[in-house]
Design a protein around this nucleic acid. Sequence first.
RNA 1: GGGCGGAUAGCUCAGUUGGGAGAGCAUCGGCCUUACAAGCCGAGGGUCACAGGUUCGAGCCCUGUUCCGCCUACCA
Length: 884
Amino acid sequence: MAESNLPKGYEPWDVEKKWLDHWEENKTFTPDPEADGDPYSIVIPPPNVTGVLHMGHALNITLQDILCRYQRQQGKNVLWVPGTDHAGIATQNVVERQLKTEGKTRDDLGRDKFIERVWEWKEEKGGHILKQIRRMGASVDWDRECFTFDEDRAKAVRKVFVQLYEEGLIYKGNYIINWCNRCHTALADDEVEHSPKPGHFYNLKYKLSDGSGDLTIATTRPETMLGDTAICVNPEDGRYKHLIGKTAILPIVGRELPIIGDSYVDMEFGTGALKVTPAHDMNDWELGRKHNLEVLSVFDEDGNINENGPEKYQGMYKDDLRKVIVEDLKAEGALISIDDHEHSVGECYRCKSTIEPHVSEQWFVAMKPLAEKARAAVPSETKIFPNNWEKVYYEWLDNIRDWCISRQIWWGHRIPAWTCEECGELIVSTEDPTKCTKCSSSKLVQEEDVLDTWFSSALWPFSTMGWPEETPELARYYPTSVLITGFDILFFWVARMMMMGIHFQDQIPFHHVYIHALVRDEHGKKMSKSTGNVIDPLEMSDKYGTDALRFTLTSFAAMGRDIKLSEQRIDGYRNFVNKIWNSARFALMNLDGKKPETSLGDASGLANEWILHRLEEVKDTMREAVEAYRFNEVAQTMYKFIWNEFCDWYLEMIKPDLYSDDASRKDATLKVLWTVLSETMVLLHPVMPFVTQEIWSVLPGIENGDIATVAFPEKRDNCRNEKAIKDMELFQGLVSAVRNIRTELIIAPSKKLELIVRTANDQSAALINDNIELFKALARLDNVTAGPEAEGPSASGTAVVQGNELFVPLAGAVDFESELARLDKEFAKLDKDLVMIEKKLANKGFVSNAPAAVVEKEKARLEEINDKKAKLTELKDRLVSVME
RNA sequence: GGGCGGAUAGCUCAGUUGGGAGAGCAUCGGCCUUACAAGCCGAGGGUCACAGGUUCGAGCCCUGUUCCGCCUACCA
């Protein structure tokens, strides 16, 4: 055997770097839109430019890469677009924090300088995550890298904004929005995180204006009383309904408040009477609109009391004010009691400050008309996998509210709207206007606000293709084939891309949406820095190799289930990578630098016929599983085939051939070995790009050295061989039976045994006699005899496999009691099965109603077990007689 | 409150038209058998959460219950 110059263990580090550079230098993954092949395209869910790769990304990238590499093998023209998201608030926060260390604020710099500074940061540090994505082996086209805030994307944003405005779908209006006092910006509903917080219920006494009594109101936020403009009760409530139409006096302030009735009020909750503060509570805002209540805003944008509040409170911060108000209420005798009460509090998803409902002028997109089409397109044009997410998607679209798209920050697409200072005309335009369209004044002031980041993300599937230009990419690759993403952004992003895609391209943005799981820690907890349970993908990559990490994630990616990741599992699959490596080493040593020229048709023998048949089945399964997004099945199929079949059985079985003097026999087997190994590498390549490429590069006789561009192995129907499967099953059964006898009777592996088989039929006899050498090698035997009349000594370890009686003659030193115990264990198993089958067959309903094939199968099983039991009983009796 | 998902071996999970309960890891026993000790061989281990129902037959389909997780919502 020749020496292999490959290292004994797989060392991923240099290998990965080598091939990443190779692919990038050769532009392996840069497709030509004019080239042949059906298009297959994916746009990457753009990670935040401030982001650091976490397991969710790693999973997301791995799955997309499997699809892209697989589709290239199928001859598709594949485009995978990479890019990042400018992440307005997050990025601005990062740079503001940086400024703070220099003792500066963004206001010190001013808008233009600040934005310049953010760009500097972006060029220097931003997009680091793309390098990490590269590291995962992502076969993206780096030539088409995009950024949601680059020039081309800005063109798309402006065009969309202007068109929607002209269509009346974008409007400006007063509305109550979620306001972050710290970030100084509006937040969309889904950017607010709700969590329960301990708080208090303050029971307050409001006197009726007519002096006829008072009523008690429960509130969790007494300080908002300064903005109260009504009191509301349920008109069905016997306690209060006579009060509707009267007025009550607001404590401290003295304002008269109308008492209104609305079924919204829950009679069971609190005191059944509710104070209404339209300017500082979402629900009160709705109530206020319904009942035409005055909207009195008493907090400014920092959360301090403004000029609408009593003079003595002005300038106070809301949290401080609460204490003062409570004292003042107490002094006035209006505070009845304070109870503990847990309630839900909204927090800014970026800075965790408490969100304050706030009335202000904002820009909105009317969603209803867009949502209807997006809803109708699923599942007819866009299919969601797994499809239970369809329901969630519908639910959201059916209850959609208008989308507040303005944000009061600097980093982002500035709203393309200008107000004329002379005549007040509002100009919305794709190009910066120089003079007013109405009065020709040049005194134009652009809106200060920028757009919600998701506005530009929503255009991603077509903005990345170069729209609004009519590019070849857009024509060829839109709509994209599939979107792979987590469910957490189904609303933020997926639904909005659907709406925008349909509206602006008249076509859905993707044919499929695959929603993958969330990656949690091994106990099912969300990974977070504060909990300290984060498993870092880059660290895992360093430690175990990227292929092992990718394979682990793939094997966990069962549809619709969260992933509980543990490092131990990655370690396990690292062993698998190494196993592959060593099997390749073994093959390469034997191939000795040459690709066998023999025809595959010359290959014969149980091992060769069997493995070639199994290879065909694996090809089928791989195709089906990848195309149905059953990633875990992809991983499982390859694992089982490579380790449990190719390594454990095939490689062991061909050793006699490889060490044989018969050159033609050896060559025929080497040809099969070469074929199975090379095709297996191609099949596995989408999941493990690196180790497969490395092995590929040292396989002799390879024409195309870049495995990423090699076609999926063709079907080889003439290699399908059902007989080989059956024969192999018997072979494995016989070998396992001997091994079991050996181990259970504690016979040293080094001791060669003898095997005598009294065969049940001609086929079995032929199989054994044709493969004597294999039996000797696999079961460690030095002599094998088989035939219908064969007879072993009574003092034998025995077994029955498919009706064949096995005798392993035992030397005197062997413990016969152990053999008896072993047989008894076997009897127990048989009896258990027997009872079940007999019961089944005794059931008249089963025999008459079950399909004939099922009944026949059961009968055959019964017969086989009975046969086996009878034979084993006889063998046991013989053994017992010897012992006596 | 509404919705969704989960409950299968000690642990993590597969189980695709309902027809003999599986894998990996862990455990136990034996092995340096010339690709691999990151390995090889063998073994033990499960009332498929609980209670009903449909069916000849249920881990799988239907109903209810319990526990866990997530999403969502206007309980001041």
